[in-house]
Every structure is written in structure tokens, then in C-alpha cells.
């Protein structure tokens, strides 16, 4: 199991477009992927789940990866957060 902490950098937060990008990438991996925010955990492959997090700029999320390709999944997904989903 891998755990990572990330911060939302883009201005608009984890709204529809970033959420869709995140879910699309997560779905490519076999590993389970969960996101925890303020003690609330959701499945990172669920677009509705990701949106209900309502993660705004500046919020901190804990990412949990578990499965055969957890390393690659963690690298790929953390990169997405690092780049602020390519948004300002």
C-alpha cells in the first residue's frame, strides 16, 4: 500500500474537468485508489465520489493506492496534482 499527501493547486479546485481527468487516469490501473479528505474517504475511480469531495484550492488530500501496479499509479496521479491539472 502506498500513501501520499497532495495539495490542490489550481484555482477552481477539483471541479468537473480535473475530476474527470483524475478518474480517467485512475481507471487505467488495476490498483484500488482511494482519496481521503477531512476523515472522509471516497473511491478515486468514481467521478461522483471525487466531486462530492468538493476539494477547493489549498485543501490537502491523502491518496491511498493498493494493488499490483500501485507504484505507477501513484507516480502518474501525484503528477496530475503537482501540475494543478494543467490549470491556472
Amino acid at each position: 500500500m502506498i500513501e501520499r499527501e497532495v495539495m490542490i493547486k489550481n484555482k477552481a479546485g477539483l471541479h468537473t474537468r480535473p475530476a474527470a481527468a483524475l478518474v480517467k487516469i485512475a481507471s487505467r490501473y488495476q490498483s484500488d485508489f482511494f482519496i481521503e479528505k477531512d476523515g472522509f474517504e471516497i473511491n478515486g475511480k468514481s467521478i461522483i465520489g471525487v466531486m462530492t469531495l468538493a476539494a477547493e484550492r489549498g485543501s490537502t488530500l491523502r491518496l491511498i493506492f493498493e494493488g499490483p501496479d500501485e507504484n505507477d499509479a501513484a507516480i502518474d496521479i501525484c503528477k496530475l496534482f503537482d501540475e494543478g491539472f494543467g490549470e491556472p
Binding site: 468537473t16 474527470a20 475511480k45 468514481s46 467521478i47 461522483i48 465520489g49
Partner: peptide
């Protein structure tokens, strides 16, 4: 399309 993605949500 964003609604379509929700209809494909595996968790739902």
C-alpha cells in the same frame, strides 16, 4: 458528456 461519465461511475 459529464452526465454520461456519471452514468458510467463504477461505484454508483
Amino acid at each position: 458528456e459529464s452526465q454520461l461519465m456519471m452514468l458510467k461511475d463504477p461505484v454508483l
